[in-house]
Structure formats: structure tokens, C-alpha cells
Nucleic acid binder design. Structure first.
Length: 194
DNA sequence: CGGAAGATTTCT
DNA sequence: GAAATCTTCCGA
């Protein structure tokens, strides 16, 4: 399992390092997990696309003001949950949105959670992977150095296979919408948007 | 206290 | 291309 130090860096560095790692959710005795294939970095106070833009501190974003390595989960459009990893030191509100996974363990559980048959569409989007892994608001603020939801070493993608791209659905963010703060693994079938 | 908008998904 | 759908947030 990744240690606290891993998360105490800036969101861009952490996001790139997260590619190829395994996101694990232990539900009772079963393990559900997926390889991280797509992420986006949100850099906080100076990033108009971030929830913590201009040091906004609300009930929702508060966890970002603590130290890195905790789960930041929020509901969007009243329908879907998104899972983020808080990064950096306290008082620096940054986070990494996990946008897509490649199913590894417990795919039958994921299929059941999602109610679809095509495994390519199981976890290829932030809302989808939360549903597939059974992540919801009850996991808000959970310590990723704990024992039920965590990230561990898995694969290390080649540098050339890490593709920078514009973030998705942040058109409202002015100049920040063009920042290349989204990263995904080249050629992977489970990336949400190509 | 009320209005507005959203780090998405799904269907047509 | 547009609706679904409701929590959260910000301004008054």
C-alpha cells in the first residue's frame, strides 16, 4: 500500500504517479479493484476549475485542507459520485480526480453494481467507477492509508505512454480549461474520453 | 432563504 | 443533442 509520503506532493506529480497503480476497495471479505488508467489534477486556489478555487472552504471541500492521502468524494448533478485523492500538505487544497480504471479484481461484483454486460464500460468514467466499486458519500474523508479503501503498487507505465490532455467538462473555468492536467495511459481501452 | 449551476451518464 | 435530478454553494 502506498504510504503517506506519496500523497504529500503536488497534485500533478501525484496524478501522473497514480497511473498504473491499483485502487482497492475491500467490501467485507471480497476485494474489488482496478488499475488506474486516467486521472485529472486539480491544483487548488489558482485553478478556476477546482472546487477549492480561491481557497474556498466549505463542508464539501474541507477535507482538501488537511494533509494528502484522504478520500475526497462529492456528488455531482444529483446523480453521481466522483472519487478524488487529496494531495499535498495541510492548507494546500489540491486533489486528483480518478477518471477511469481497468477492472482487475471482483469484476463480477462490478458488473452487478453497474448492471451492464460490456466490461469495457464498467469503469471508464468517474461516476461509473464509483458505482462499480461501491464508493459513495460514506467514504468521504476516509484515510487511504487505512484498511478498506487504499491504493497499492501494480504496474509502472512507460513515460512515453503517459499522455497529457485537456481536462474534461470544465469549460466554465476560463483559461484553466486549456491546462493539460489530465493524464491517461496511451491506448488503454478503459480511458473515458479519447 | 432562494436561485443557479454542476470535475456526468444515459438515452434518443 | 438533450434530459435527468438534487446537493451544494453563493449572493442577498
Amino acid at each position: 500500500m502506498l504510504k503517506r509520503d506519496f500523497y504529500l506532493r503536488d497534485a500533478i506529480t501525484v496524478s501522473k504517479d497514480l497511473l498504473g497503480k491499483l485502487l482497492v476497495h475491500e467490501i467485507g471479505s471480497s476485494r474489488v479493484s482496478g488499475k488506474i488508467v486516467e486521472v485529472e489534477a486539480y491544483m487548488g486556489p489558482d485553478d478556476a476549475a477546482a472546487h477549492s478555487y480561491k481557497k474556498r472552504n466549505s463542508k464539501r471541500t474541507n477535507i482538501q485542507y488537511g494533509e494528502g492521502g484522504f478520500a475526497y468524494i462529492y456528488m455531482i448533478y444529483g446523480l453521481h459520485f466522483c472519487f478524488n485523492v487529496v494531495t499535498n500538505i495541510p492548507q494546500v487544497p489540491q486533489a486528483v480526480l480518478i477518471r477511469a480504471l481497468e477492472p482487475v479484481e471482483g469484476t463480477s461484483v462490478m458488473l452487478e453494481n453497474r448492471g451492464v454486460k460490456n466490461s469495457n464500460q464498467l469503469t471508464n468514467g468517474p461516476g461509473k467507477l464509483c458505482k462499480a466499486l461501491g464508493i459513495d458519500n460514506s467514504h468521504y474523508g476516509l484515510d487511504l492509508c487505512g484498511s478498506s479503501l487504499y491504493i497499492e503498487e501494480y504496474e509502472k507505465p512507460l513515460q512515453k505512454d503517459i499522455i497529457p490532455a485537456k481536462r474534461v467538462n470544465v469549460d466554465y473555468a476560463g483559461e484553466a480549461k486549456d491546462y493539460l492536467w489530465r493524464f491517461y495511459i496511451s491506448g488503454n481501452k478503459h480511458v473515458s474520453v479519447v
